[in-house]
């Protein structure tokens, strides 16, 4: 069982507006990533608040996606990648030998840039996670989880009459919401989103953004985006990455009104990137 340490958890520093007073969900200290000999991430330390949206922004290749993938150890799937430093979720070290990566990823879900529904029906896509983890004890329970997850992902109304049809037959935006439902079905605490709307049209993007805003009631969300307006719209905290380094992090409001670092200013005002 996963224990949630909510008592006496440290809280995010003052001045963080919306996220102020929220307990810290994930603590990152001196995280480095190497791909072979190439260092992709330099000593990143950042706290992620619970049940809020944290956005990572920065020019492409700045390491924001690389860092995101550290938090559910997806970098493990890349043979040449090496991660150092400490990452703790609710005080538990995610690199601890006693924590199986299966357990970690069940707690920290992920949504990818390109919608990647499995070549299965809509129902089976959502039921996949609960099935492999043995989360449902009966068909009725599984049905309930699928329905609930699709509702939370705001896809139920569109999908309820075509649950047995292939997930790949949905539109791009629907596919991405299906992937969100798929992640939700495992009942994670954290959802990592790697540019979830970058492959979508503006209307589908707006729906995803609304969805993210709703989801933060129940989940800790970290979203990587290259779209600054998006970060401003959906997040409570924002972190700016540049050349593999965390340059600045602050409440979203302050970040976009009064950035402290020159590089952040330049990026936000569109001078590079």
């Amino acid at each position: 069982m996963n224990q949630r340490v909510e008592v006496a958890a440290p809280v995010v520093a003052a001045g963080s507006d919306d996220a102020r007073g929220r307990p810290i969900k994930i603590v990152n200290r001196d995280v480095n990533v190497w791909y072979g000999d190439k260092r992709a991430l330099h000593d990143v330390s950042i706290d992620i608040p619970d049940r809020a949206v944290t956005a990572f922004i920065g020019p492409s290749g700045c390491g924001k996606s690389t860092f995101l993938r550290c938090m559910n150890r997806m970098n493990d799937t890349i043979p040449s990648a090496r991660v150092t430093g400490t990452i703790e979720i609710d005080g538990q070290d995610i690199h601890d030998r006693s924590l199986d990566v299966v357990q970690l990823r069940a707690r920290v879900g992920m949504v990818f840039q390109k919608p990647n529904p499995f070549a299965k029906s809509i129902y089976e896509n959502v039921a996949y996670g609960p099935r492999i983890h043995g989360l449902a004890r009966s068909k009725a329970e599984l049905d309930a989880i699928v329905e609930q997850s699709l509702k939370r992902a705001a896809l139920w109304d569109e999908a309820k009459d075509r649950l047995s049809q292939p997930g790949t037959g949905l539109s791009g935006g629907q596919q991405q919401r299906l992937c969100i439902a798929r992640a939700i079905a495992v009942d994670p605490e954290v959802i990592l989103m790697d540019e979830p709307a970058s492959a979508l049209d503006p209307i589908a993007t707006a729906r995803i953004e609304d969805l993210i805003d709703e989801l933060r009631q129940n989940y800790t969300i970290v979203i990587v985006t290259h779209n600054m307006q998006q970060a401003a719209r959906v997040s409570q905290r924002t972190a700016f990455f540049h050349l593999g380094k965390l340059v600045e992090e602050a409440s979203t409001e302050r970040m976009f009104t009064a950035p402290r670092d020159k590089r952040t200013q330049d990026y936000i005002t569109g001078r590079f990137g």
Partner: peptide, 17 residues
């Protein structure tokens, strides 16, 4: 596509699953 593997692994599936 690797994306499908990533999707499954990110849900906590083992490589065998």
């Amino acid at each position: 596509p690797q994306g499908l593997r990533d999707g499954s692994l990110a849900l906590g599936a083992t490589r065998l699953e």
